[in-house]
Amino acid sequence: MKIAVLSGKGGTGKTFVSINLAAAADQSTYIDCDIEEPNGHLFLKPEKLKIDPVKVQIPTVNKEICTGCRKCVEFCKFNALAYINKNLMVFDDICHSCGGCKLVCPENALSEKEKVIGEVQKGISESVNVITGILNTGESSGTPIIKKALNSIENNRGLTVIDSPPGSACTVMDSIKDADYCILVAEPTLFGAHNLNMVYELLELFNKPYGVVLNKCHKEKNPAEKFCKEKGIKILEKIPFDNELGELNSNAKIASRENKRYKELFSSLLEKVIEEVKNETVINS
């Protein structure tokens, strides 16, 4: 079973919920798809690391054959090509590796070369298999890293927790694509409710089953909770604003491994989610 954890903004507690869910299960795989800033490994501290580079194809031109027709320059929607002084310039960092330029070249003057844009790390942290996607700084698209990270799951039958990137863009869509269930983590602020709405709309579009975890709850009004009630969204759990949690987090400790109360909270959250997925299967079958 694959559970994706996402939120409309950063800092709501996606990684917090993901690592604790993974640690609460008997056996699990945790995949960090927040490739621009993966930090689940800081908590899980995986050992026996295996590192695989992630490569993409970028165009390279044979100047002898290129006639300067510019069909490739006109084709590239990312403007990664320019034709200056009878010379085709390729901007590697702008290229999204779609391969279109090679297809439209009537002279077959373009070929492709490999370029490393990041890596996928695999390791073990007690009962958790840890997979971390890392995009090199300055690269334009992280989706190849996410695809490779998601394809690195070895045990497909166990629980997989996918820690998604923040927001609702391509990288998020790629990371939730194969998820059986999505957990939305939201903060008790107006901004939090606004960003919750963004991912809510995305999931409606993807037709995925989902529920919300309200994080950092305090006694004040919770606009994210109000939003859930208005839209009839299931609230799976309310995690309190707790100094102890803050301290554990800032020391890179995993709450469900350190504190019995949080072990119980996340075990119960996991059970609720498993129950939800079962119900979904019944409805859809």
Partner: peptide
């Protein structure tokens, strides 16, 4: 453009046959 606007705009300038560009700023690409 969604991205790479500087590159495409620069191509326009080159194609115009200009010898000099006067601009308040300009990106690397």
């Amino acid at each position: 453009s969604q991205g790479g606007a500087g590159i495409k705009a620069a191509q326009t300038i080159v194609d115009s046959g200009a010898n000099v560009l006067i601009t308040p700023r300009c990106g690397e690409n």
